[in-house]
């Protein structure tokens, strides 16, 4: 593992598989009466959220707490400019407080990259979603969910699996991270959207593109429905909500044409009646709730690996190249802390 997690594009296959396998081990603790591991005791993790996202924030918070880290939630609603304090000054404040890792959610693409490379802080940076750029832990939890449902083996990737991502690709950090990660793991990715919601330049991505949902459903092992904001129609990305739902929404009839063991995914929050009908959202094929649970395991794995788990506190970062040690399922790591 590298010192930061900024982009799914930075992960090698070995890195990604290590995170997924580590998350499997973390998940095993979730089934125990006492879910807490002592591995990050004495470490401080800051959740720095410039955008509201209760779901993502509590997922990171739960993950850090299960690893016994001290968690500070820093909610800086609105942009750094409107708030009057710069990202830099916020970062310097967190640095002075001794943050070992900063989990950042920011409305500007590239803000986590700036935080990690500007020299403002010494700890690890985890991107919890930046603008319309990336959301790497979401892609990891999606891959984790797919591997469990479609492959069922640790140590494996997603080789040959056909994944379809549907919706507002243009504004989606989830789609960008997933395209990178899923292709790294060997999956075939197809993006489906009206042409207005695909970025100019998408042809250089490691995936295929289609405007026709019905044409790809029958050959999809997983269909990931992205949230589409209703306000987009005001900017003429599509004519009406109803037309969008008719052409690109997933309903029961369309789901019936998917292969038998295929799954429906959604990163949430869902717009029922827009990109997904209630029938599909509540069906056993839909993994939306499972994804939330898996999110905690993935974020535990990421923080464990980035902070070196058993290794001494800062300044020593996790070793490069995926050599970080994995936790033992026995959970007897107390003596190695501090």
């Amino acid at each position: 593992m590298k010192r930061h997690l900024i982009s799914a594009a930075d992960l090698t296959r070995d890195d990604a598989v290590l995170i997924l396998d580590t998350a499997e081990e973390m998940a095993r603790f979730a089934d125990r009466p006492i879910k807490k591991l002592p591995t990050l005791r004495g470490r401080t993790i800051v959740n720095l959220f410039f955008e509201d996202s209760t779901r993502t924030r509590i997922s990171f918070e739960a993950a850090a707490k299960r690893l016994s880290a001290d968690v500070i939630n820093f909610s800086a609603k609105g942009s750094s400019v409107s708030k009057g304090e710069s990202l830099k000054d916020t970062a310097l404040t967190l640095e002075a407080m001794g943050a070992d890792a900063v989990v950042i959610r920011h409305g500007d693409s590239g803000a986590p990259h700036r935080l990690a490379t500007s020299g403002w802080i010494g700890g690890s940076v985890v991107n919890a979603g930046d603008g319309t750029h990336e959301h790497p832990t979401q892609a990891l939890l999606d891959a984790f969910t797919m591997r469990r449902r479609l492959v069922g083996a640790e140590g494996a990737g997603l080789d040959g699996r056909r994944i379809t991502i549907v919706g507002d690709i243009l504004h989606s950090r989830v789609a960008r991270s997933n395209v990178h990660l899923l292709s790294t793991l060997g999956a075939h990715v197809t993006l489906v959207a009206p042409p207005t919601l695909l970025p100019i330049g998408v042809e250089s991505w490691p995936c295929e593109v289609s405007y026709d949902l019905d044409a790809v459903l029958a050959k999809s092992d997983a269909v990931m429905m992205l949230r589409v904001q209703r306000e987009r129609m005001n900017a003429a990305f599509f004519p009406t909500e109803r037309e969008y739902a008719r052409r690109y929404g997933l309903d029961g009839e369309r789901m019936a044409r998917m292969p038998e063991r295929s799954i429906v995914m959604h990163p949430g929050p869902m717009n029922r009646g827009m990109e997904i009908t209630a029938e599909v959202a509540d069906s056993p094929r839909c993994t939306a709730v499972e994804q939330v649970a898996n999110g905690v395991s993935i974020r535990m794995a990421v923080m464990y690996l980035l902070l070196g788990g058993a290794e001494p506190a800062r300044p020593a970062p996790a070793p490069e190249g995926g050599a970080a040690s994995r936790p033992h399922a026995g959970g007897s790591r107390t003596k190695e802390d501090h």
């Binding site: 693409s109 603008g131 998408v202």
Partner: peptide
């Protein structure tokens, strides 16, 4: 708009200036 619209903006998730 934040940068030239093209393959790089698509990847970086920055709004394009075509």
């Amino acid at each position: 708009a934040q940068m030239n619209e093209g393959t790089v903006s698509a990847e970086l998730g920055l709004a394009g200036w075509p």
